[in-house]
Design a protein around this nucleic acid. Structure first.
Length: 258
DNA sequence: TGCATTTGACCCCC
DNA sequence: GGGGGTCAAATGCA
């Protein structure tokens, strides 16, 4: 098992969860505030992310290939404001990652010399309100099949401002960030109606896959906004604090030498 | 009318 | 000077 396999499994489990929900919605011909398209995207994103874990150097989460080659390249990728090697995390998927659990505001779009596709620039919608510096760039990097590269820059602190819980080891502007696994515990069941800790899910699925596949629940329990749901249930690369850059760097650098 | 997006101009680094 | 990133006024939309 390569390092990061547990992350891939978690992503796949979440994809399976979304697929099950999608199945229920379709079977019962019922409407939900969680749109079918959203569920579809989540399934695709889950699989894409899991695949990226398996395919990118076997041991590393997907990073910009040029970034992993040399430190000097990393510095060049952050030409402004931060020349101290600000880290980024890229994720390729067949569809743009719209439902990554955060609310973004587009602030720019540019033609890129080396690409026929435009690059879109987004920053956290709460950039001003909550002083959140998180940004992302989205660019189509391949035509057929279409591949979209989403590059996340800096960390979200907006969610931490909202959901900061007593005894949580969240350090704003520090290495630690929101831990979505703690969100699972903190969120009311209305928001997390059927989401068990990933470890439990894995055990349950191993023991009784049929039971999981035949799970039935009332779709009305999902009376939450898309943003709410996806923010809690499927943040980008949400297992634990996986998406956050300090942890990613640890993940990347420590194990690329193994 | 307020908010989000678009887009041209400007800034900064290489 | 070129290219990528950001700013901010203009525009669109609900």
């Amino acid at each position: 098992m390569f390092h990061g396999a547990d992350k891939a499994v978690e992503a796949l489990l979440r994809g399976q969860e979304s697929a099950n929900l999608l199945k229920t919605v379709l079977e019962h011909q019922r409407t939900s505030l969680v749109s079918i398209e959203t569920l579809f995207d989540t399934v695709l994103d889950s699989f894409s992310f899991a695949l990226s874990l398996f395919t990118s150097s076997n041991t590393q989460p997907h990073r910009d290939s040029s970034q992993s080659k040399a430190a000097s390249v990393t510095a060049r990728k952050s030409p402004k404001k931060n020349t101290s090697g600000e880290e980024q995390y890229s994720h390729d998927s067949p569809t743009p990652l719209h439902n990554d659990g955060f609310t973004w505001r587009k602030y720019g779009q540019k033609n890129i010399k080396t690409s026929s596709h435009q690059r879109c620039y987004y920053r956290c919608a709460y950039a001003k309100d909550r002083n959140c510096e998180a940004m992302k760039r989205v660019q189509q990097i391949q035509d057929s099949p279409p591949v979209y590269r989403t590059t996340y820059v800096r960390k979200h602190i907006c969610e931490a401002n909202v959901f900061l819980l007593p005894n949580d080891d969240i350090i704003i502007n520090g290495s630690n960030m929101i831990r979505f696994d703690k969100f699972d515990q903190a969120m009311p069941e209305l928001v997390m109606p059927q989401l068990a800790p990933v470890e439990q899910q894995a055990i349950t699925i191993e023991e009784d896959t049929d039971q999981i596949m035949n799970l039935e629940f009332d779709i009305d329990e999902f009376v939450v906004d898309d943003d709410q749901l996806w923010g809690y249930q499927f943040p980008p690369f949400s297992p634990g604090n996986f998406m956050f850059l300090d942890d990613m760097s640890e993940f990347d650098y420590n194990h690329s030498q193994l």
